[in-house]
Design a protein around this nucleic acid. Structure first.
Lengths: 124, 124
DNA sequence: AGTGATACCGAATCGTTTTTCGGTTATTTT
DNA sequence: AAAATAACCGAAAAACGATTCGGTATCACT
């Protein structure tokens, strides 16, 4: 464990928002959960390239921040944890949609711009 | 200079969006510019706690990504650079507004949740 | 000429997040 | 009993982004 050394300002809506969902995979996790993928291992598979440990840690943070709630279902198999959006978490979904749509709409432009990166390591 | 060692996927709208405006101060910079604060030193003052070097570097990235364009006005004083949104950059503004509004609306909840952090270093 | 403001850059360092690795526990299936 | 799967955790390492520091250059005003 460690504690932050740099102070963070929360006087700005943007900084508050990024504090809650700015983590590298948090929006992807929330997206998966909103689509009904609610168990850690399946979320990890849905995202594909994020290690499981990362999913676990970001789930824990989202839980601590009140974005998600956890339920442990004992009856079924393969059983165990399921994560759901809290009412607070639900308020993020419109933001998520806005961001995702923007990225999707502009993916062509962004990808076309990054081709000529001379400082990129090219492995053949 | 350095080159990234971790591959980045751009198959996801969220990841694309975060690549363009996910930097710690980028949204704050775009917000300032959209409000008519267009010169580095003034942007730095407007944000307050971000070092000038950071503003410069993030401006350079936004420039390279086609979000901003730079104009050097020679006539006036104190003269020099001015940064403006490109048409591509303008498309980010609705996203910015959405994020900022969410953060502002939920700042009370977020702040109230972070008081009881037991792992926080308390200096007396 | 000296001072102050502006813009900008390289390079090193720092701080944080992300990732990797190696576990534990519990349950189901074989 | 052994193997497989799921959830989860601690600790260290790696990677990245942010920050600090010291520098150059230009122009305006005194």
């Amino acid at each position: 464990m460690y504690s932050k050394k740099q102070e963070e300002d929360l006087d700005c809506g943007i900084r508050i928002a990024f504090k809650i969902f700015g983590g590298k995979w948090k929006m992807c996790i929330l997206d998966a959960i909103s689509r009904g993928i609610v168990r850690p291992a399946l979320i990890q598979k849905a995202i594909g390239i994020a290690p499981l440990r990362v999913i676990e840690m970001q789930l824990a943070e989202l839980l601590a921040d009140g974005v998600l709630e956890k339920r442990i279902e004992e009856g079924i198999y393969p059983k165990k944890s399921m994560y759901f959006l809290t009412p607070f978490g639900e308020t993020i979904l419109p933001v998520l949609t806005t961001i995702d749509r923007w990225g999707t709409e502009h993916s062509g432009y962004v990808k076309s711009r990054m081709a000529p990166q001379p400082d990129m390591e090219i492995v053949t």
